[in-house]
């Protein structure tokens, strides 16, 4: 279609164009809800069936890292919301600053996620042939980042879980399948979101976004908040299953 300024040829007015774009984004987000819904269902069923294994698996996650990432992601949602506000009121420098802040927080999240993932990898907690929930308990030398009291605690928890579920290792592997499936899918969405943020940053540095036309900022904002919402659910579902023991 031919472009006349910021109005695409198939539309009659900018309002109609913005209305269509926003509606399209919301519908897209609903498809995302259903997309995550499928894996949520797999999680819910297996958690119901293998609760001891899921509780044990959850307790091997680092609450500190997970909690820190939750705060980071919520904060990035806040900075994104302010970036949208800046574009609505036409504060062009502020848009770039807050987009940059959002990107930075996103990368902090990736960094922490990388630490978590590599830890799980070293602890033999990635689903597959080498998966062993007892690896750190049996090989303290292989897990130098876990100190002795923590190992004692983990050993006690795993023994209890093993008493409740003789096939603990297989079922803990299901928990980790859910963990990597859900957080991996979430991280993939964040990578796409980060790419979109860079694209926005390029546009905002060129001064393209005005109070009259800021649809891309608004829509990427919607997407970024949605990814935040997914994490809002993932955090308690994965990290906080059975912490009170």
């Amino acid at each position: 279609m031919h472009r006349t300024g910021e109005l695409y040829g198939q539309f009659k007015t900018l309002e109609q164009q913005k209305e269509s774009a926003t509606l399209g984004m919301w519908i897209f987000l609903i498809t995302e809800v259903m997309f995550f819904g499928g894996i949520m269902l797999a999680y819910a069923l297996n958690r119901h069936v293998y609760f001891p294994a899921f509780a044990a698996g959850s307790n091997t996650l680092s609450l500190k890292l997970g909690g820190f990432n939750t705060v980071v992601l919520l904060a990035s949602s806040f900075t994104m919301a302010v970036a949208v506000w800046s574009s609505q009121v036409g504060k062009k420098t502020l848009i770039s600053i807050f987009l940059l802040l959002t990107i930075t927080l996103g990368f902090v999240f990736f960094g922490v996620k990388y630490v978590e993932y590599s830890q799980k990898f070293h602890h033999h907690l990635v689903p597959g042939k080498k998966f062993d929930i007892f690896y750190c308990v049996n090989n303290p030398a292989g897990c130098p980042d876990v100190d002795a009291p923590e190992l004692m605690e983990e050993s006690k928890l795993l023994d209890e879980a093993k008493a409740a579920d003789p096939d603990l290792n297989a079922h803990a592997q299901l928990y980790y399948s859910a963990y990597f499936g859900m957080t991996g899918l979430h991280a993939l969405h964040m990578v796409i979101g980060a790419g979109l943020l860079f694209w926005l940053l390029k546009g905002s540095l060129a001064g393209r976004f005005t109070p009259q036309w800021n649809t891309p900022v608004d829509l990427v904002g919607l997407y970024w908040h949605f990814v935040d919402i997914v994490w809002i659910y993932l955090f308690p579902l994965l990290y906080l299953i059975d912490r009170h023991k």
Binding site: I30, T31, E32, M34, F35, F36, G37, G38, I39
Partner: peptide
């Protein structure tokens, strides 16, 4: 509403 579920 349906297709994302078959995708996942």
């Amino acid at each position: 509403l349906g297709t994302p579920v078959i995708a996942i």
